[in-house]
């Protein structure tokens, strides 16, 4: 079960002088929602296009179910993708849009009506897609992705333009599909959209993976009760705090990071040991902060347990 279903290895791609992908490497496992998050221009869409065989990488490989996408037979039965919900022929009805896709995979027409029901498009499906609202287009795109009942679902920014009700519906849908054992890869440029839904997060920046961890790990890393202490005698301070039974780690020459102790107690411990300090700051980072920290700088975080922790 833990066998990865999408394997992306060392992708490189340039568009002219701009580097889009710079050693992108990750895997996506089934049975969970994997968030694919990074600022605009980080390389999310390019990576998804490479996975779907739309763009050719300069280097590296992307495998789906162990094969390059181009080698999949009836690929919509293996991968459902929502890349651009606006990619519709406006004068074709939503149902006919699904119909040609179904024809390309030898699916019966009845399947088209099933997915229309599933996404709640209903009678709108027989209207021209040009008249659809953003949310309806999104639902049609999701219907297209679900058409082949695929074990892998890839969605590029699926929440764009959705109303709150739609977002909740979407989260539930993706979650339930993950519970069914599918691999779900959802990209977003907003961590907050993924926070309550993703089981695992890939943070992307400048064409590579900055963080690849479960949400729990990221949150533990980010919002553990960390306190930063600035002192001219870092090693003495760390020693004193460790003797007091707390984890303390020297970050650089005059900063240490302490966890499991409140700032006030730290001040007490250091005062008793007569160690000078200039600043004691409690750290209360959210997932969003880690994300911003990761994506604004060169910082990289990879949970040590990353490969093992998966059940």
């Amino acid at each position: 079960m833990s066998e990865p279903i999408i394997e992306v290895t060392d992708l490189h791609k340039r568009f002219g002088s701009a580097v889009a992908l710079d050693g992108m490497t990750f895997t996506v496992a089934p049975g969970r929602v994997t968030g694919f998050v990074g600022p605009n221009g980080a390389g999310k869409s390019t990576t998804i296009r490479v996975i779907l065989g739309l763009d050719a990488p300069d280097e590296g490989t992307a495998l789906v179910c162990g094969q390059p996408y181009q080698h999949l037979q009836r690929p919509l039965n293996q991968v459902g993708a929502l890349v651009d919900a606006a990619a519709l022929q406006p004068s074709r009805t939503g149902r006919n849009h699904l119909l040609w896709m179904a024809r390309s995979q030898d699916m019966p027409t009845s399947r088209v009506d099933e997915v229309i029901e599933l996404v709640g498009l209903g009678s709108a499906a027989r209207r021209k897609a040009g008249g659809y609202s953003l949310g309806m287009r999104q639902r049609l795109g999701i219907a297209a992705a679900l058409l082949g009942d695929p074990p892998v679902i890839i969605m590029d920014e699926p929440f764009n333009g959705m109303d709150p009700e739609g977002i909740i519906w979407m989260r539930r849908l993706l979650h339930s599909m993950a519970v069914e054992g599918r691999a779900i890869l959802v990209s977003s440029h907003l961590m907050s959209e993924l926070q309550d839904m993703a089981d695992h997060v890939l943070v992307i920046g400048r064409g590579k993976v900055l963080a690849d961890a479960s949400v729990d790990e990221l949150i533990a890393h980010a919002s553990g009760d960390q306190v930063l202490v600035r002192t001219s005698a870092a090693s003495e301070a760390a020693g004193a705090l460790q003797r007091a039974g707390n984890a303390a780690r020297v970050i650089d020459g005059n900063t240490i990071s302490v966890s499991g102790l409140e700032a006030q107690h730290i001040v007490e411990v250091l005062s008793q040991a007569q160690i000078p300090f200039s600043e004691v700051t409690a750290q209360r980072a959210s997932l969003e902060d880690v994300y911003l920290q990761l994506t604004s700088g060169e910082a990289e975080f990879r949970a040590s347990s990353d490969r093992k922790a998966q059940s």
Partner: peptide, 11 residues
């Protein structure tokens, strides 16, 4: 951009 959907369905 429909061409991408087409090539996703038939690589």
């Amino acid at each position: 951009g429909l061409i991408r959907t087409t090539f996703t369905a038939t690589p």
